[in-house]
Write a protein that binds this DNA or RNA. Structure first.
Lengths: 97, 97
DNA sequence: CAACTAAGGCTAACTTAGTAC
DNA sequence: GTACTAAGTTAGCCTTAGTTG
């Protein structure tokens, strides 16, 4: 999550205000989320994802490789997404399951 | 999440016990998670994902198309994953951002 | 300006007990 | 056997206030 924020070039307090948090609390809350001290409600995670332009699933992904795929999905057009779906289904079909 | 559980053919209480919940509470807790009444802690979601054989990010994905990609990723071999990564990066590179 | 932390209030999850199919 | 819900308790998030570079 911090990675996505730094990529967007937004400080913690600005990000918090952007999703509707109070100015006085924004910095502390975003800090907790990034350090892992607290977990945000899903609704908050969703708003953060919108501002940072990534699918919300990106925040819940420990696998860096899968995270990269999810992030790319977020930047993909509808046609690109369809193409990715087809490729993935073909690549995995009939194996290991 | 219910979808993944039914696919695995496990009842709610059995699933709960499988991740370490008490027998008396397992059914009620899993029920709340599936109906959306309560949100599980990330640690619990992680254990559920392991038993149900899906990446944990799958539970936090509202986009059904992306969910399908994530689920397929969970079933993919290391080589297949690498191939997916390469395809996705190529498909999205330089567009829309 | 930007990021982090401690402590107390308050919200949401957890447990218990019970119902419906 | 399987799935869901109500009410009281408890754990964890949110707010305030303050510290560091």
């Amino acid at each position: 999550m911090r990675e996505a924020r730094l990529l967007a070039g937004i400080p913690q307090d600005k990000l918090g205000v952007a999703i509707g948090l109070d100015e006085g609390t924004a910095s502390a809350r975003i800090s907790r989320y990034e350090t892992g001290a607290h977990a945000p409600p899903y609704d908050v995670a969703n708003k953060l994802a919108r501002i940072l332009r990534v699918p919300v699933a990106y925040f819940y992904c420990e696998d860096d490789d899968l995270a990269g795929v999810i992030e790319a999905w977020g930047r993909a057009s509808a046609a690109q997404r369809r193409s990715i779906e087809v490729f993935v289904e073909r690549a995995v079909r009939g194996e290991d399951g």
